Amino acid sequence: SDYEVNVNGIHHRFHNISEELIKFIEEALRRGEDLREIIKKVRELLG
């Protein structure tokens, strides 16, 4: 049904976003950045 496609589409989009965010955060932590600064950047990215 349309509803299922829609829900799956939304889930898929969020899954991709969270994968990208996790990579972004892991790389920043590897560079020794402060978690609070990383979260601030993530918030800015998400608008």
Rank of each mutant, 00 (worst) to 15 (best):
V7H: 10
L29I: 14
E37Y: 12
E37A: 13
G47F: 05
V7P: 01
R31F: 13
E27I: 11
D2P: 01
F24L: 10
L29E: 04
R30Q: 14
F14Y: 02
K40Y: 07
E19V: 15
G47E: 14
E37W: 10
H15N: 12
L29A: 08
Y3R: 01
I17W: 01
V7T: 04
R36Q: 15
R36T: 14
E26W: 04
S18M: 05
L45S: 11
I39V: 14
E20D: 15
R13F: 15
L45M: 12
L29M: 12
S1Y: 14
R31K: 14
E20K: 08
F24I: 12
L21S: 09
K40V: 15
D2T: 02
I38T: 07
I17A: 09
S1K: 14
N6M: 04
E19Y: 08
E37G: 11
L21I: 09
G47C: 04
L45T: 09
N16H: 07
L46S: 14
L29R: 07
I39M: 02
L21K: 05
L45C: 05
I22M: 05
V5Q: 00
E19P: 10
R43Y: 14
G47P: 15
I38S: 02
F24A: 08
L21C: 05
H15T: 08
R36Y: 12
R43W: 06
G9M: 01
E20G: 12
F24T: 09
V5G: 00
E44L: 10
N16Y: 05
V5N: 01
H11D: 09
V7M: 06
I22D: 00
F14M: 00
V42R: 02
D2N: 04
I39R: 04
E19L: 11
E27R: 07
S18P: 07
R43M: 10
L46N: 14
R13T: 14
N6V: 11
I10G: 06
V5L: 06
L29T: 06
S18H: 05
N16M: 05
L29G: 03
L46P: 10
L21T: 13
V42L: 09
I25R: 00
V42G: 02
N8D: 13
N8F: 00
E33I: 08
E37P: 07
V42C: 02
G9H: 03
V42T: 07
K40R: 13
R30C: 06
F14R: 00
R13C: 05
K41Q: 14
I22E: 03
I22Q: 05
G47N: 12
R36G: 10
H12R: 00
V5C: 04
D2R: 00
D34T: 08
H15C: 03
L46T: 15
N6Y: 03
R31A: 15
L45P: 08
Y3P: 01
E44Y: 07
V7A: 06
V7R: 04
K41M: 11
E4S: 04
K40T: 15
E33W: 04
F14N: 00
E33C: 06
Y3H: 03
E19M: 06
N8A: 06
E20A: 12
N16W: 03
D2A: 03
D2F: 04
E4Q: 04
S1M: 15
L21D: 07
I25V: 08
S18R: 06
I10Y: 01
H12A: 10
G32S: 14
L21N: 08
H12V: 12
I38Y: 02
R31E: 06
R13M: 15
K41Y: 08
R31Y: 10
E33Y: 04
V42S: 04
F14P: 02
L46R: 12
N6D: 09
I10P: 03
V5K: 01
N16R: 02
N8K: 07
E27H: 12
L21Q: 13
E27Y: 05
N8V: 00
L35A: 12
R36D: 10
N8C: 08
H12K: 02
N6S: 08
I22G: 03
F14C: 01
E19W: 12
Y3E: 00
E20R: 06
V42W: 04
N16T: 04
N16L: 03
I22H: 03
N8L: 01
R30N: 13
K40Q: 09
D2Q: 03
I39P: 00
L21P: 00
I38Q: 02
I39T: 07
H12M: 03
Y3Q: 01
E27G: 12
R43C: 03
L45R: 14
E33D: 13
K41I: 11
I25M: 04
E20N: 09
I25Q: 00
L35T: 10
K40E: 14
I38R: 02
F14K: 01
I22Y: 03
L35Q: 03
R31H: 13
V42I: 07
I10C: 04
L29D: 03
E20S: 11
S1E: 10
K23Q: 11
E4T: 08
S1N: 11
F14G: 01
F14I: 02
L45G: 10
R30T: 11
V42A: 06
F14V: 02
H12T: 04
